[in-house]
Nucleic acid binder design. Structure first.
Lengths: 335, 335
DNA sequence: TTGTAGGCGTTATCAG
DNA sequence: CTGATAACGCCTACAA
């Protein structure tokens, strides 16, 4: 196949017998062009199957119609769902999404940020509280001061950042309250992520246990890493520790699934002997037997709101700096 | 914060006391520049914290250093993992990935393709056989003929396409053989996707059943939609149909998980009464009780190879049009 | 309403 | 080895 020369605005102008300025006007549908001329131009465009180059346009406008989405790990179901929702929404309003999977290293984060800016993004959305540190130091750089940031699940004090967060402390509160209603007293919490959000959930656990007059000791909180194996490991640790418990809240469904596995192997019946709650309402939570009670993080809403927020900022309108979404407890068989 | 003027190549040239041409040379580290000059320029770059504009560069080079990744649904674990692997690999070799979640509509697909081309991508990777139809008709358009396509899980006859596929027929073969070894005769297959790949898996099932002398009737194959609910529904249908079976192969883990759920509710013991095999080795497969035997699709390898292939094509080197990867059976508790 | 022309930030071609 | 300078494709005053 012969590589045809890329058609440009001059070709269209020539065919339509007008100037490039006029073509540009109908492209960006400005008012000041007569219906007749407009028609001619549109015809030429269609005939040549012309598409304006986003790059050339970007060069003069100082930005391309794109926004960058930074996530540490698209493989995590709730990040994936959030990113998906954002992407969909962005597409609707005519933006391209550049989805980046940073892997979490602070060096990578910076590089990606730099790349995005060089590509002329109109804004950047970061999913997850992992970005707190990177952003904290990076956003001070003047090169980033002109691009608006929307942080999903994270807040930092900088002029050009806007946040939409989920009230995870409330999510944990729901868990504790639910378990108390079910008659549980000895509740354990498994923290499975060393992030800002992980800390907040843990804090919420302590707070609410205290508030409801439930016992909290130095054997009430255990740590592990977010994964099926991490869940197994922490349950072994719990069992070995001799801690009393009739219920465990895990930081994520996949960790809970591992924990459930280990508990069953150890001869415990769930929920009769011990109740279990996961977090994030992932596909895995429904595959467990018993199916996991969990907290839904409203990924779609988070995604949509993030994009809406960014849009109003890009358009220069006045808006709030912070939006907060309320999670929901999904009660299933494990409690 | 005062929005500082974006620093450009002229600023650097001025500070370093050379021409922009020279700056450009050190930027792209061409050989023909004296060590002393190079040093001066690099110093100026660092001093000003200068970053070349990818857009301006793109305008003259006719491409930005980016590649587009098209996927129908990042929410599906194995697409997510594949995309992740690609992204990582791409980043390594200095490319930006523009990850697009098309949702599967043929219209969307086209729009995305167009967007990517307008953004000056160096290549496009499509994940999934869903793109077969879109691409079939779209790639004939001359506007796409200059950009190389790498199709993951898909093949179409066009000059500028290269494929890396997984031998899914072999995957199904492994399932059937494994089941036969375990003494099963009455094996059912559940097709849960109306894609090219879905068809191939079904075909492979028939082929291998016949080859191994196992019975195949009009009640050997059932259809549903890929999801937990789809799995439940199809098992109900199977039960109602009166089909004989001692094992079921599902098109995906999540569907298998639903099927497992329904089977257990109906009083079947797995794997004693009926064996179950899933597909894709997703996190869900490990959360099931019993844990699912499944087929690993080698997402990392698929991702890496796709990128490597694209890279050699972009670099204009000679290469194969087709790469095939072999899946692996992961035997767990459900068989 | 329409056209002319300059500029956006790089790279690449040619001279020196 | 280095420096002018013309593209690249589009937008936008400024003029007509």
């Amino acid at each position: 196949m012969i590589a045809k020369k890329k058609i440009n605005i001059y070709d269209v102008a020539r065919i339509a017998n007008v100037s490039t300025a006029t073509v540009s006007r109908v492209l960006n549908n400005q008012s000041s062009v007569s219906p007749e001329t407009r028609r001619k131009v549109q015809e030429a465009i269609k005939q040549l199957n012309y598409r304006p180059s986003a790059i050339a346009r970007g060069l003069v406008l100082k930005h391309t119609k794109t926004v960058g989405i930074l996530a540490t790990d698209i493989t995590a179901p709730n990040y994936a769902r959030t990113a998906c929702a954002m992407e969909r929404e962005l597409f609707q309003i005519g933006y391209n999404a550049i989805l980046c999977n940073t892997g979490g290293s602070i060096e990578n984060n910076k590089t990606y940020l730099q790349m995005l800016v060089n590509l002329g993004v109109c804004g950047i959305i970061c999913i997850g509280s992992v970005f707190k540190n990177t952003l904290q130091e990076t956003l001070m750089l003047s090169e980033f001061s002109h691009v608006p940031f929307v942080l999903s699940h994270c807040q930092i004090p900088a002029d050009n950042t806007y946040s939409v967060v989920i009230d995870e402390m409330h999510g944990v509160q729901l868990c504790v309250e639910h378990l108390k209603e079910k008659g549980h007293k000895d509740i354990l919490y498994v923290k499975d992520a060393d992030t800002y959000s992980g800390e907040r959930k843990k804090a919420a656990f302590k707070e609410n246990m205290a508030r409801l007059g439930l016992p909290i000791t130095d054997k009430s909180i255990f740590n592990t890493y977010r994964s099926f194996e991490g869940g197994i490991a922490v349950v072994k640790e719990i069992l070995a520790s001799g801690a009393r418990f009739s219920a465990i809240i895990f930081g994520d469904d996949i960790t809970a699934a591992g924990g459930l596995f280990a508990l069953k192997k150890a001869g415990y019946k769930v929920p009769q002997d011990v109740a279990i709650i996961g977090y994030n309402n992932s596909p895995s939570s429904i595959c467990c037997d018993p199916q996991l009670t969990t907290v839904d993080n409203k990924t779609d809403i988070m995604g949509n709101l993030s994009v809406k927020l960014l849009q109003t900022v890009i358009e220069g309108k006045e808006t709030t700096r912070l939006l907060s979404v309320t999670p929901e407890l999904i009660v299933r068989e494990s409690t």
